[in-house]
Computed example of a mutant assay.
Amino acid sequence: MWKQILIGIILVIITIYFHAEATRFIIQIIKNRSNDNIKGRKFSRVIWVSIMVLTMLSASIIEAIIWACCYLYLDAIKGFENAVYFSVVTITTLGYGDITLYDEWKLLSALEAAVGVIMFGWSTAIVISAVQYIYFPEQNKNK
């Protein structure tokens, strides 16, 4: 059990790192764009928001693949496709249950689900903040 918790903590730290880097990237985009550039045409704003959503989604996919690779390394599941599928279903807390980890590694899936809830909340917060900045730049003038 302690081995699973230690491995889980390491994976959680890696997950947080990738999410932080995605967040940093989005903040850099916003800082490097003046309000005049972002608040232009409606289509332009949609593109900027789409880039930010895709950035956070890409971070989540990378994180799920990292967890999947760990499952393969630990021999907790067979096959890369099964590992990625299981990891995505787990990190999104969808949890179909059609594929599971071998019994001695099941605690890791609970840790992945727990961090998934937090990461998707984090992603939502970043995207909402970016939408507010892009669509309502007048509210950001005092910040």
Rank of each mutant, 00 (worst) to 15 (best):
S60H: 10
K42S: 12
I29R: 15
D36N: 11
W48V: 11
I7C: 10
F18L: 13
D103N: 12
A64M: 01
K143Y: 13
W67F: 02
A83L: 05
W67A: 01
G97S: 03
L108A: 08
Q139F: 15
P137D: 02
M119L: 15
V127Q: 06
I13E: 09
N35P: 06
E138H: 11
G40N: 13
K141L: 13
Y102T: 15
I47R: 09
A64Q: 05
L94T: 15
N82L: 07
L57Q: 06
I29D: 11
G121T: 09
I27C: 06
S123T: 10
H19F: 14
R24V: 03
I126E: 01
A110H: 08
A68C: 03
A110T: 14
I14S: 08
A22R: 00
I77F: 07
V53R: 01
G79K: 03
V49A: 07
K141C: 06
A114H: 02
L101W: 01
N82K: 03
T93A: 08
T92Q: 08
L6D: 10
I5P: 00
A110V: 13
C70H: 00
T124I: 10
I10K: 08
M56H: 02
V89C: 00
M52I: 05
G121F: 04
G79P: 02
E138A: 08
W48K: 05
Y96T: 15
L94D: 05
Q139I: 14
V84Q: 01
I27W: 05
V88D: 01
K143F: 14
R41H: 14
I7G: 08
C70R: 04
